[in-house]
Design a protein around this nucleic acid. Structure first.
Length: 494
RNA sequence: GGUCUCUUGGCCGAGUGGCUAGGCACCGGUCUGCAAAACCGUCCACUCCGGUUCGAAUCCGGAAGAGACCUCCA
């Protein structure tokens, strides 16, 4: 990869304009990207893998293009309430109370597990992973700015964002496409909202109830920051008050991201984000997979196959490939059939990558690799259309197999182009890897297997089929598969 | 109820006004002592009803079904 910036043809879909736009960084070649990370009070499920992988692709591709990307993904370890703002309990605090642990123990435990899962999926670690609890001063400062600018009011030790007043000067709802009037009419009246002037107002600082264990000092009360403050405060701290890309799940568009915009405008006087990107949901039986719905399968369960709905274990790369086979803005329905199809397709791709290294150069040439590369870049440039890019990869797989079978020829220049670009697309941009290393293949095992394969080969040479089949069948029984190939027999742990 | 989105072949999943998506499965073939694997090839489509157009799965209108958000959620 060169350090020079490649010609800019990247189009991305901006949720704010509801249209694809040419990507032009605010301060090229620097790019600032913020993505909403997990609330760490439970294991990550398949749904959490979606934005992680989707924005990993964005991160990887922008770097591939030569941009200097600062990617910030937060860890939410405070502030998300179970129910309504006025009476809910902090999710992490609740979990801590139930399990009699320190809240930070809970947060640390699950954020470690989250990162382990992401590593397994070959998701690159963001440049910065700030925690909400580590940025309380930044958040209280921002609350103060909003108060100073007249877009919030204090009530009973809490501070509320004055949505109605804000909406008189700005448009609260421009991201999610709604009018405040509609929201006013349709918001259910909940109990305990007497502190708010209007039901659409939201807390930006919340006074802690006496039994609430997660609390910090502030000018208004001992309490904790509101739901949306952390992203506004931390993105501004690390990326500036105006940055390029903000990502997250579609379910965060309202109220979370809408409120982030309002807070930033109220505090800093201008919009915080140039391009808003939202990934769609993973569904199960056509319904969103979600914690509150209780229909989720954790990533660990996928990796081990330990869930009633799973027919087998699915490797991290199968999960990653499965995700990349769908466009990030489409819903993706989970099923064993789809996952198994993804697994087989992925294996086929990886085998072709191995075969690629055995291709021999010819004087003749049957393939226009430059055209293939152009088409592949067009796919990824079109709002990160990974399914089309993968279709392109399978075109390359076909070429590789034809070459390997001697049914087509390729010259040195084209082969070099193919190898270089294929490696870039598969490993660098899509972030796939071969998972080939089998821990069981130590020297002793390899030696024993070599011996058995030789014995069987001798039997085959003598046309002693019963002995040859006995060796193969007994190995199959203990979980080792034997395949006869042109280059001799190979084995694998089934 | 309000706002918005979607409806593609056996399954998953792209897409454009006319030109092959791709993967998996199936079927046929090559290979093979047999088997498996691998490879090659073929088949199957655009929810329904109108309209615009020389031509629509693709644009417009309507119907039906599904989903998301409106409450913490990736």
């Amino acid at each position: 990869m060169s350090t020079e910036l490649k010609p800019n043809k990247l189009q991305l879909y901006n949720s704010l304009s509801r249209a694809k736009e040419l990507f032009v960084p605010i301060n090229s070649p620097n790019v600032g990207m913020y993505v909403c990370g997990p609330t760490v009070y439970g294991d990550a499920h398949l749904g959490h893998a979606r934005p992680a992988i989707a924005f990993d692709l964005v991160f990887r591709y922008l770097k591939h293009l030569g941009y200097k990307v600062r990617y910030v993904r937060n860890i939410t370890d405070v502030g998300h309430l179970e129910n309504d703002a006025d009476q809910g309990e902090d999710k992490i605090a609740k979990k801590a109370r139930v399990e009699q642990l320190e809240p930070m123990e809970i947060a640390q435990f699950f954020s470690d597990r989250y990162l382990d899962n992401m590593d397994a999926l070959n998701v690159l670690r963001p440049s910065i992973q700030p925690r909400a609890s580590g940025h309380i001063p930044e958040q209280t400062e921002m609350v103060q700015s909003i108060l100073d600018n007249g877009f919030a009011y204090e009530s009973g030790g809490s501070v509320y964002f004055d949505v109605v007043k804000y909406n008189q000067k700005h448009h609260y709802g421009k991201l999610s496409g709604r009018n405040i009037e509609d929201t006013l009419e349709n918001t259910r009246q909940l109990e305990g909202q007497h502190e708010k002037r209007d039901s659409v107002d939201f807390a930006i600082w919340k006074k802690a109830a006496p039994e609430h264990i997660m609390r910090w000092k502030s000018p208004w009360s001992d309490g904790f920051p509101g739901w949306h403050m952390e992203c506004s405060a931390m993105s501004a701290k690390y990326l500036g008050t105006q940055f390029d890309i903000h990502g997250g799940g579609m379910d965060l568009r309202f109220p979370h991201h809408e409120s982030e915009i309002a807070q930033s405008v109220a505090a800093n006087g201008h919009d915080p984000v140039k391009y808003w990107m939202h990934n769609n949901m993973v569904t199960i039986n056509g319904q969103k997979m979600g914690k509150s719905l209780g229909n989720f399968i954790t990533l660990d369960e996928f990796f081990t196959g330990s869930h009633a709905l799973l027919h087998q274990a699915y490797s991290p790369m199968t999960i990653r490939f499965f995700m990349l086979q769908a466009h990030y803005r489409s819903t993706l329905d989970f099923s064993n059939e789809a996952l198994i199809a993804a697994q087989k397709g992925f294996e086929k791709l990886m085998k072709a990558m191995e075969t690629l290294s055995k291709i021999k150069v010819s004087n003749q040439n049957d393939f226009d690799i430059k055209a293939w590369i152009t088409a592949s870049y067009e796919a990824i440039d079109d709002d990160f259309n990974s399914p089309i890019l993968i279709a392109q990869l399978f075109e390359a797989v076909r070429m590789i197999n034809l070459l390997h079978d001697g049914k087509a020829q390729i010259d040195a220049e084209n082969l070099s182009l193919l190898v270089t670009s294929l490696h870039a697309f598969v490993f660098e941009i899509l972030g796939l890897n071969s998972e080939a290393s089998q821990s069981s293949q130590n020297d002793i095992t390899a030696g024993l297997m070599q011996l058995l394969i030789e014995l069987r080969q001798n039997a085959k040479t003598n046309k002693d089929w019963p002995t040859a089949d006995l060796i193969r069948n007994r190995l199959t029984e203990i979980g080792i598969g034997i395949k006869d190939t042109k280059e001799g027999a190979v084995w694998e742990v089934l």
